[in-house]
Design a protein around this nucleic acid. Structure first.
Length: 269
DNA sequence: CCCGGAACCTGAAGGC
DNA sequence: TGCCTTCAGGTTCCGG
């Protein structure tokens, strides 16, 4: 499941291969993945354009084109982008060919990912809160946002308008690191707890990026290799296994229909 | 605005 | 063996 660290890894590993290159051919294999405009218009508007830069914002990838447009890709649950795969891949949705022969292949087993085109960053920007790894994500601003919400902290961490880029796995890992129960109402956290969580979010994401993301389910890096961040998970996807700190079995609890993993001993309500 | 639940989607896994 | 149900979760939509 691509979250911020996975999308950041893809961005970094794709960047040197795509920036400055021209899109010479666009093959939309599954028109259903194109959102907000017709597949034909998207294809016509990006073919022949140069990729000026590649940026990640939250879980979105934005390719800025020489036309001034932004080609936007969101991988959702099962999307991946592969560079020059050795053989045809199952669930291929989109193929971009560049002027040096490079091929970018967007695959998506569950078909929930989207490709779109906009003339500014605004549509993406409007959906998202602060980037957690940028200096403007401060503990004060974080505390402010939490104070307005009484929903479970786990649910609030998944709200992209509160913080951009956190998903189910890293929400669980950050809450464990901060020692906070996932069902605690967001506005019940003390200032100290909020600061611990703020720090935990940043260190959890940084460490996952160092490990090139977590390969659970279908996530792969553009070169086809897996990430290693999941080997360092303490609670995420580890229901029933002993907590690495105290040995208590990790519990699984559905919150907002998402499996939430936590240690009932280290994260008391 | 805020909240929780359902829908979208497909393949894997488990029950019978 | 095979059919059926359940589960996985990022985002959006909807009713309260």
């Amino acid at each position: 499941m691509p979250e911020l660290p996975e999308v950041e890894t893809i961005k970094r590993e794709l960047e040197p291969h795509v920036v400055g290159r021209e899109l010479t051919a666009v093959n939309i294999c599954d028109t259903k993945i194109v959102a907000h405009l017709s597949p034909k218009i998207l294809k016509d508007r990006i073919t022949g354009k140069r990729i000026e830069s590649l940026k990640r914002r939250g879980k979105y990838l934005l390719f800025r084109l020489s036309s001034g447009d932004y080609l936007i890709i969101h991988l959702r649950m099962s999307g991946a982008i592969l560079l020059n795969p050795q053989q045809p891949l199952p669930h291929t949705r989109l193929i971009l060919r560049l002027d040096d022969g490079t091929e970018l292949v967007f695959t998506d087993r569950r078909r929930l990912g989207i490709v779109s085109l906009t003339d500014s960053e605004k549509p993406v920007e409007d959906k998202l809160g602060p980037e957690p790894l940028k200096p403007h994500f401060t503990a004060e601003e974080f505390a402010n946002r939490l104070q307005r919400r009484k929903a479970p902290i786990k649910a609030v961490l998944l709200d992209q308008k509160v913080i951009a880029g956190i998903g189910n796995m890293y929400a669980d890992e950050a809450l464990f690191k901060a020692g906070i129960h996932p069902l605690r109402p967001a506005n019940s956290l003390s200032l100290q707890e909020t600061e611990r969580l703020h720090t935990a979010i940043i260190s959890t994401l940084r460490s996952a990026i160092k490990n090139k993301g977590a390969s659970v389910e279908t996530y792969l890096r553009p070169n086809g290799e897996t990430g290693t961040a999941h080997f360092h998970f303490k609670v995420a996807h580890r229901g029933g296994r002993p907590c690495p700190t105290c040995g208590t079995p990790i519990q699984r609890l559905p919150i907002r229909n998402r499996g939430s993993y936590f240690c009932p001993c280290c994260q008391k309500y």
